[in-house]
């Protein structure tokens, strides 16, 4: 189903932020909307978004390809994006990541067999003083988890697996 039919209120609200002659501006928020359920943006969804803001599918694909928070392939329901950039790495992020891999039984870039978690290493998330930290990107948006330990993280993973949704 098209976004405009499925989320009429959201689409309208997004479009209202920008001058009507510049509705192309709405492409990024619309892509987040399109990504909400499946965790990735399908070709059909790109076409749909292109139609709403009146640009070509190629233009939409070019945006999906540029920004790292848009995904064009289905992967884990939650993406666990651990910051391993310089400031976090100075505070043990790399070890944290290694331990996490061992506990989850996957390598960076892989997805747990149940399809729940894809583990990714990312660049700075503006939480350098609270390393180790990561964010999850999932159906309910993006959430930060700071000053984490492997144990706390595994608890979160278990909770996610159980409830299928994010814990508060």
């Amino acid at each position: 189903m098209s976004l405009a039919k499925k989320y009429p209120k959201e689409v309208k609200q997004i479009l209202s932020k920008y001058p009507p002659e510049h509705k192309r501006s709405a492409v990024m928020p619309l892509l987040y909307l399109a990504q909400r359920e499946e965790g990735y943006i399908s070709k059909a969804a790109m076409q749909d978004v292109a139609g709403i803001v009146d640009i070509t599918e190629t233009d939409v694909a070019a945006i999906v390809g540029f920004y790292t928070l848009y995904h064009d392939k289905k992967e884990g329901k939650y993406r666990m994006q651990v910051c391993t950039d310089l400031p976090c790495a100075l505070r043990g992020a790399e070890q944290f990541m290694d331990n996490l891999c061992a506990n989850l039984g996957i390598k960076v870039g892989e997805t747990t067999p149940d399809g729940m978690i894809t583990l990714e290493a990312v660049t700075c998330l503006a939480a350098c003083d609270k390393a180790p930290m990561f964010q999850t990107q999932g159906p309910d948006g993006i959430k930060y988890y700071e000053n984490m330990t492997v144990d706390k993280t595994m608890e979160l993973v278990e909770a996610l697996k159980k409830s299928g949704t994010e814990v508060k």
């Binding site: 950039d85 310089l86 400031p87 660049t123 700075c124 503006a126 939480a127 350098c128 003083d129």
Partner: peptide, 11 residues
């Protein structure tokens, strides 16, 4: 945008 590694003030 606050994306410079080491910057976390704006947030």
């Amino acid at each position: 945008d606050e994306s410079e590694p080491g910057t976390f003030k704006d947030r």
